[in-house]
């Protein structure tokens, strides 16, 4: 059974295809009482009472623009700190970590895929994947072979091509390869199909979801694209807090 409580200010609704109790025992992510306000505003931007994502679970987060979907991913990734509450990833509380520990933890346990991929321009495909492995737990001697295997498995034939010379589809493959390179516990995807043609969306999602399954990682995907919602184990709908809630 999924644990999902309804926050006072942000309403989460859900649909599920998997009721297995295993998820309660194997949490990839646990959020408790998280509230976030933007620095220059006292208004509440995001409030989640409770959200738990099981290991290997694939969750899609939907909601209108401004409801805090991307903010939620940044909080989970430790790129932003919540004003209140606890975020636990793979059993470790991000809130209790120092900045550098959180960075190190992110490098080892969290992979990210972005709408515009955010690859390192000027670097090759191989170097982009190796860049992620720089911060992983894998021994340096294994980096190259691991990166090459990933690149091959994801169907990229040009490991030495520079990123700017690749098509959008190829860049997406590199972004996925980079996200799973360090065998993270959780992969966060922020609008991964928004930059793609509709006919490529399904291929891209297959690639991302299968890649996560291949390493037993959970996937949390933020999207506006309702056509991909059914591909996930669960949908979480994030809503914009009302004015009263914000105050």
């Amino acid at each position: 059974m999924l644990e999902l409580s309804f926050g006072a200010t942000t309403i989460l609704s859900m649909s599920t295809r998997n009721d297995s109790a295993e998820f309660q025992l194997n949490h990839a992510l646990e959020i408790q009482g998280v509230k976030y306000r933007y620095q220059k505003s006292s208004e509440l931007a995001l409030s989640i009472d409770s959200l738990i994502v099981a290991r290997q679970e694939q969750v899609v987060i939907t909601g209108r623009s401004g409801c805090g979907k991307s903010t939620l991913l940044h909080l989970i990734a430790g790129l932003m700190e919540p004003n209140e509450g606890v975020i636990t990833v793979a059993g470790s509380s991000m809130s209790r970590m120092s900045g550098s520990k959180r960075d190190q933890f992110r490098g080892r346990h969290i992979g990210m895929v972005f709408q515009t991929f955010h690859l390192l321009n000027g670097f090759t495909v191989l170097e982009n994947v190796l860049a992620a492995l720089m911060f992983s737990e894998f021994p340096r001697s294994e980096h190259r072979s691991r990166a090459m295997t990933l690149i091959e498995n994801l169907g990229i034939n040009t490991p030495n091509a520079r990123i700017q010379d690749l098509s959008v589809g190829q860049q997406q493959r590199v972004a996925v390869a980079r996200a799973i390179a360090c065998s993270p516990s959780i992969v966060l995807a922020d609008e991964p199909t928004a930059a793609l043609d509709p006919e490529y969306t399904s291929v891209a999602m297959d690639l991302l979801q299968n890649a996560c399954r291949s390493i037993d990682a959970s996937l949390i995907c933020v999207t506006h694209d309702l056509s991909i919602v059914d591909r996930f184990d669960r949908q979480v709908s994030l809503q914009v807090p009302s004015l009263q809630e914000r105050a």
Binding site: D103, L120, A131, M134, F135, S136
Partner: peptide, 12 residues
Amino acid sequence: QIAVLRVLGASK
């Protein structure tokens, strides 16, 4: 580039 490296796990 700095932001991407930070996302990948580079500390400040």
